[in-house]
Design a protein around this nucleic acid. Structure first.
Lengths: 341, 341
DNA sequence: GTTAAAAACGAAAACGTTTTCGATATAAAT
DNA sequence: ATTTATATCGAAAACGTTTTCGTTTTTAAC
């Protein structure tokens, strides 16, 4: 009934617990004969070391925590998938929490993870997070922390990101290169760094090409998370306000697809009347008609890289070395499809 | 540097570890004075019980494991969200693994979770899983196990499901009620119980209404996971094979949306020429044109219910009661939209 | 047959908590 | 002052492992 322990193996074999433990871990000071004996018995009794005891003794849990703003989101679930796939290879399990974009929850969850004594933490920040004490707390405990996608530059930890500004620049440049003369921008909420950086990339591309920057062409999202409807809404607003816009760089594919849907309905031809570039390369963007030109945001790879960096730091800590903080920037590429000329 | 322990508190206060422990847990045999003293000091030193030690002593981890075939899937990530939301309320953390629809991986992961000694396991089976030893093993260890969505009826554990057959029946009935005379079915892969049940529901609705069942109207998916393209492909196959079909019940919304896309391109009018009902109520199905009539599959609620059942069993086990196995069937409703008359 | 070196083993502490049960101190009762 | 009851405390075992360091046994060397 109860799980087998080292003690039981030791007793039935008439040897000490110490020897059993060493035999199973191939210590050099155990004879081949007893090693074989122990291993055989362990096998037949289906011995599994008690993880709780091992954790306590070694003071590590081979478990990491990850906090994302939202699980039900194609990008984040992809990142999570990447993280888990790597973690599994290295024998780590992954605890997942979601902050629902709330700073309070995020803080609470960091504490939950610290209390559980996970070996390390991966996090993508909530939009509302502006105070970072809970994160510096992690760092000061010398516990590996890696931020991805939505980061805080201030916190002294490793980060895995894309260059949002550069990507947005190239998206806008592509609209310019394909002949657009008046280019609008649908940006998301105001706060998050991503949104800011993409906006700045858009603006810089305009100015570098001698285009005027017109704030009335930038559409902000005041709503919560109704991304698709937001696209439809902004699309019709745009049609009302400006009849000369011939290109839009849109913050997110889902918003872009909402916009395309609205344009399709209104008889606006894409890309002839208005060309569109999205952001993230959501799988639906190749499916919709017309297919959407967009920036590929490598979620899966970001997850992998984030875990790999965390793993490096875990190993460094174990060897009492100081961990090397690092910021990894992943390449984004423009995926050209039918929504631009 | 090192985390505070009961011992340190005891020493600085000149009392025993026992008393400190009891004071913090409000045992009745500790005076109010010492309780206050202990709690104050614990507060200022920011004492947090060592989870590893607690785990070992109480032999529970307040952690559960969950295995899904695929995380990057709207339905499953919704279920996961539901599970986590409930688990968090009850003080449980959640470890997530994905089987990638592989039986071998699933088996390995069950063992991983057992080795980590999670308190309970939630699982949705891989398509390939036909042998259930790894699962009966969990049950025989008296560790709570709850299956959801993709289940195995044989295994003696609690389950949370929808009535796929009934839902499919009502979907098909709706096509009949709105005037369809010749109704096709796009089913997924052959093996999974879901796919079978939905097919059976479709068939039964036909027969009950005096329609003939024509196997050539049932389209199977041989491919892997290219759901959207599968919809497009099957749609054009159907147009080739049959010019008299005026309604389709489709296994999954994503396939349905693929089909709609193809029909739109080919100039087939929906619902006038062909009416379509999907399955799952994916958020995109209200976005597409025409919006998709579908069966709502309550993922978030399923996750919540699944955890609640697991929690009941966890508590029962703790009290040495035998846990009551239960199968919970969630209601599905037909969401009528523009893809049917 | 003695000694030295090498090989094999085990006792015991440690990780930090929880809980049982016995011991002590205080208060109440006679 | 003695007994009884009650309130408060603490010693110690237990959870199962890992690892240090000392002890014993075997082998090799002379």
């Amino acid at each position: 009934m109860k799980p087998v322990t080292l003690k039981q193996i030791a007793e039935t074999l008439g040897i000490s617990i110490t020897t059993v433990s060493k035999a199973l871990k191939d210590y050099p000071d155990v004879s081949k004969k007893t090693k074989a004996l122990v291993k055989d018995l362990a096998q037949t009794l289906n011995y599994k070391p008690n993880a709780f005891a091992v954790n306590l003794r070694t003071s590590e849990s081979k478990t990491i925590g990850i906090i994302v703003p939202e699980i039900v989101h194609h990008f984040f679930s992809n990142v999570i998938k990447g993280i888990i796939s790597q973690a599994e290879k290295k024998g780590y399990l992954v605890i997942i929490l979601q902050s629902n974009e709330s700073y309070e929850l995020e803080k609470k969850q960091i504490n939950l993870l610290l209390d559980k004594r996970v070996d390390g933490i991966l996090i993508s920040l909530a939009n509302g997070t502006a105070d970072f004490k809970h994160l510096t707390e992690v760092v000061s405990q010398d516990k590996p922390l890696v931020m991805f996608d939505k980061i805080a530059k201030i916190v002294k930890c490793s980060k895995v990101v894309i260059d949002d500004r550069k990507a947005a620049y190239s998206a806008t440049q592509h609209l310019i290169d394909t002949g657009c003369k008046r280019i609008a921008h649908f940006r998301g909420p105001l706060l998050p760094q991503n949104s800011i950086d993409r906006f700045l990339g858009y603006k810089k591309a305009l100015l570098d090409n001698g285009f005027p920057y017109d704030p009335s062409l930038v559409y902000i999202c005041e709503c919560g998370d109704m991304s698709f409807d937001e696209g439809k809404l902004n699309a019709s607003k745009l049609l009302n306000d400006h009849d000369d816009v011939d290109g839009i760089f849109i913050n997110t594919d889902m918003v872009a697809i909402g916009a395309i849907t609205e344009f399709n309905k209104r008889g606006v031809r894409i890309p002839e009347d208005i060309a569109i570039v999205g952001f993230s390369n959501w799988f639906m963007s190749s499916a919709i008609t017309p297919s959407l030109t967009t920036i590929n945001q490598p979620g899966f790879e970001m997850g992998k890289k984030a875990f790999k960096q965390l793993y490096k730091e875990l190993k460094a800590i174990k060897k009492n070395k100081s961990k090397a903080i690092k910021t990894i920037t992943l390449e984004t590429i423009l995926v050209k499809r039918d929504s631009t000329k």
